[in-house]
Structures are given as structure tokens and as C-alpha cells.
């Protein structure tokens, strides 16, 4: 059912349009700020209901504020996403056709990689096989910088990963397009790029790094939740903020 929105909802949505993605803490602060600005009631634990009201009105335009986890730190994020693929959505002007082709090639490489990463060298090499107008090296580098700035890719030491914003928006697409390559986390059931894999060849389940941290927290003798074999990987620390943002 679609609900009546107030200016606080509209302001929140406008902020989401500007930001693209925001973490849970920021979203809560924003929610409170929007309510204060328009003198409406704000229940701190009602953020998701507040967003649901907005989503009910965005649905006809195939837009949504969608929640998802960062593979990096395990925190919850909210992203404003597009859900349709039509002649209209393809009129977007943010990236040229050849830039989008290169982005797709980078995504192919990331999805098919073992560790969910691709080096800038491998991306630069892709330009040889492009069907649209090929990009020069300097153009590719400029494009990669833009894709990081606009929060579609993350970069660390010359290696690129899909950003949280990209994963949240593209998850249905990635599941549909890369059916046999895509990894799914055994704990949270979302797609996984940065993850640990059970070494039992008959098992081989995947778990996100932050999900590993949370699942094995405080266990001295970690075992695979599926096959019960010893879990040989290093268990990462649960990153702060989590417990803090809970209250």
C-alpha cells in the first residue's frame, strides 16, 4: 500500500539521491534531522518503517532505498537503487557506452576471480577486446578514478573490488547474469566476493569476512557450520561500531 509522505520523507529521499549510499548510523542521524527540520515525530527505532513509506511511493518508478551489508566492515548500508532495465533507464548520461562496456568487463573479471578483486593492469588489458570505441590508457585510468569517486568501485593498492553501493544495486543482476560463478554466503545468504571458503573439497561453502568474524567470535576451535571440518582460516576481528550502532 502506498502511504502519504511528509516533507521529512521527501528531504530524506533527496539526501539519498545526493549521497547514493549511506551507512546505518548516518541514515539514523539523517532521519532525525529530517524530522526535526519539519517538526514531525521521530521514533529512533522506526527508520525502516520510515523508509518503507518512501519505498511504497517509489515502487511505481522502479526505485527503492535498499538495505545491504558492506563486505568490508560488516555494517548495514542504505542505497537508493534503480530496479528496471528499459529504454528509458538506458538513456542515462553518466557514462558513455564504451565506459559502460569497460565497467562490465571489470565486473566480469571480479565475479570470476577467486578473491573478488581485479588489478588495474588486467582492466587496462581489457580495452583490447572492446566492441565499442576503445579507451586509451589515460582515459581508462580517468574512468576508474571516476568509478571510485562515484562509488561504483573500490580501490586499494591498485586492486579494484565492487563497492557496497554497486553490490546492493546490482545483486539481482549479478545473480541472474553470473549464475554459475556467483558465490553466496552460507551465513547471510547474500552474494559474496570478499569471503573465506571451506577447504573441504566436498563442502566449499563461502562466508563473508565480517560474517566469519561474527559467527566465530569467541570460539577457540572454529568448525565449518556445514561440514564440521576444522575452519583453518584466520578469524578476523569484529569491527567496532556494530554494537555501538545497535543502541
Amino acid at each position: 500500500m502506498s502511504r502519504q509522505l511528509g516533507d521529512s520523507h521527501r528531504r530524506f529521499l533527496q539526501n539519498m539521491m545526493t549521497l547514493g549510499i549511506t551507512n546505518e548510523q548516518e541514515a539514523k542521524a539523517l532521519y532525525q534531522n529530517c524530522c526535526e527540520t519539519h517538526k514531525t515525530q521521530c521514533a529512533p527505532d522506526k527508520l525502516d518503517e520510515f523508509i518503507d513509506a518512501i519505498n511504497s511511493r517509489l515502487q511505481p518508478m522502479f526505485m527503492q532505498i535498499r538495505k545491504g551489508m558492506s563486505e568490508e566492515n560488516g555494517h548495514q548500508y542504505y542505497a537508493l537503487v534503480n530496479m528496471a532495465e528499459t529504454d528509458i533507464t538506458r538513456m542515462t548520461s553518466d557514462y558513455a557506452d564504451n565506459e559502460l562496456e569497460l565497467f562490465r568487463k571489470a565486473m566480469d573479471l571480479i565475479v570470476s576471480s577467486e578473491n573478488g578483486k581485479v588489478s588495474s593492469t588486467d582492466i587496462l588489458n581489457c580495452t583490447d577486446t572492446m566492441t565499442s570505441k576503445s579507451l586509451k590508457k589515460s582515459e581508462t585510468q580517468h574512468l576508474l578514478t571516476r568509478l571510485v569517486q562515484e562509488k561504483w568501485l573500490c580501490e586499494r593498492r591498485g586492486e579494484y573490488t565492487l563497492s557496497t553501493r554497486c553490490i546492493i544495486e546490482m545483486e539481482p543482476y549479478i545473480r541472474a547474469m553470473y549464475q554459475d560463478q556467483v558465490k553466496v554466503c552460507h551465513i547471510c545468504h547474500n552474494i559474496a566476493f570478499q569471503c573465506q571458503i571451506c577447504e573441504n573439497p566436498l563442502c566449499g561453502i563461502k562466508i563473508h569476512n565480517p560474517c566469519v568474524a561474527r559467527y566465530f567470535k569467541g570460539r577457540t576451535d572454529p568448525h565449518c557450520p556445514a561440514c564440521d571440518d576444522f575452519w583453518p582460516h584466520e578469524i578476523p576481528e569484529v569491527r567496532g561500531l556494530r554494537s555501538q550502532s545497535k543502541r
Binding site: 537503487v81 532495465e85 542515462t92 562490465r104 566480469d108 570470476s112 554497486c166 544495486e169 539481482p172 547474469m177
Partner: peptide, 19 residues
């Protein structure tokens, strides 16, 4: 007016080339 930006839906959905 803030503008809306997205990646999904900006290009044709195409499965990757077989590996």
C-alpha cells in the same frame, strides 16, 4: 533538484562470455 544516479539498468543485460 538533486539528481538520481544508478548503474543497474544503464546498459543491456548480457551474460559474460563463456570462460
Amino acid at each position: 533538484a538533486p539528481s538520481f544516479h544508478y548503474m543497474m539498468g544503464s546498459f543491456y543485460a548480457e551474460p559474460p562470455p563463456p570462460k
